[in-house]
Amino acid sequence: MKQYLKRYAQNFDYPLFFTVLLLSLFGLVMIYSSSMMVAIVREEQAPDYFYLKQVKNLTVAFLAFLVAAIFPYKHYANKNIMLLLTVILVVLFTWLKVAGFGAEEVGSQSWIIVPGLGNFQPSEYAKLFIILYFAAAFYRKAQKYTFEKLQPTEIFYPIFLWILVVASVAFETDLGAVIILCGIAISVVAASGIPFKIFWKFFGVLGAFGGIILTLLFAFKGQVLTEKRMGRIQSYFNPFDYEDTIGHQVVNGYYAIGGGGLEGRGLGQSIQKLGYLPEPHTDFIMAIIMEELGIWGVLIVISGLGFIVFKGISIALRTKDPLARMIAAGISCWIAWQTFINLGGVTGIIPLTGVTLPFISYGGTSIILLSLAMGILVNISMFEKVARKSSQS
């Protein structure tokens, strides 16, 4: 163990770690700035209410990062680990169905209350689970068969499990998470190394099941396409026509972005956070960053997240281990898709989905699971460096 830790310290991915750390600390500052009015008026708490809660979240997230960074990633292909992760997933979604909440507040039944931890969002766990489970399943199959002979029917269980997860998340009406889960699954399969022809067969199976899911969703559209969700689609096309109702958040986000200009109003000087923007510290925190810090704040966030995605893809391309490649590609895709969906909703490129901005937005479940993912990526990076040095010597 001592030798492992020594080798680990010598090959630790410091650029990736410090990028995640700086983004998280930057997010902490912006959460304090953007949430003060919400804390006072809506929660009837001190101005630093959300800031202090996020400090606790970051403490837990740091511990999660350390554990994941030290734990050898190859163990995720172990059958017992796969079973444990699956059991946790089933328990969380069953718990959510029985005692979930959030539909009354934000139109999405997405949270459960875990004693001692507070609110927990199972869909965030589902993102990391799909990456690890798909990567492990394909890796184990690759040990038995060549990918040229692998058929979609031989990986029935991962596909079936993916369908159940996507359907469960969709019926929470967390449509942003559904898009991310689909992107993650495709990226992991694409990184597995299967031939292009087989990949399209697999993609066809996913598409067929996806069509069935869409049919079911529209059959129960009253449960999935709720009035709030339909309002977001309507406000996407004509936000200023619904400025006083369903387009209120989008329009005030535009005011925040336009009000900041190139240089911004100054840290803490946002106007839109003073009761105009309903969720300034969660999915619309980038609008506040733009208003207060202008183009420089945007560059900090985009550069940091872009570096993480670039680093993950680089690790996936360099490693010769298919398990490491699939996990690294899946994590990179997760960060990239979630960033695009959040920024796309804030800027009006796509409809709002309520997805948070990675490492920046307030949220305990998000920062903890993302930190776990970063710990796994750092661990893969360390093993990749060791393998590269060994091959060169």
Rank of each mutant, 00 (worst) to 15 (best):
G348R: 03
T347C: 08
T226K: 08
R318C: 12
Q249P: 08
Y255P: 09
I295H: 05
W337S: 05
Q223L: 14
T319S: 15
G258T: 10
G330P: 11
T245P: 03
T356H: 06
I302C: 01
P278A: 06
C333A: 14
G294D: 02
P322C: 13
G268N: 09
F220L: 13
S332H: 07
W337A: 14
G266W: 01
Y254W: 13
L216P: 06
P239Q: 06
G312D: 04
S303N: 07
V251T: 14
G264D: 02
V309H: 02
F220N: 15
I302P: 00
G330T: 06
I349F: 01
L299D: 03
W296C: 02
M286A: 08
E291Y: 09
G231C: 10
I271F: 11
V346P: 06
I308P: 01
Y255H: 15
P358I: 00
Y276R: 07
G294Y: 03
E263H: 09
L305P: 02
I350T: 09
Y276E: 08
Q223M: 13
R229N: 10
G222V: 05
F359D: 03
L214M: 15
E227L: 12
F237C: 05
A256T: 00
G261I: 00
Y276L: 12
G247C: 04
E291C: 06
I289E: 11
I302L: 11
L305G: 02
K320Y: 11
W337H: 09
I300D: 02
A328S: 15
E227G: 15
T319M: 09
T215Y: 15
A287D: 01
E227C: 06
T226R: 07
P239T: 05
Q269G: 01
I327M: 14
I289K: 04
G345R: 05
G354A: 11
W334L: 13
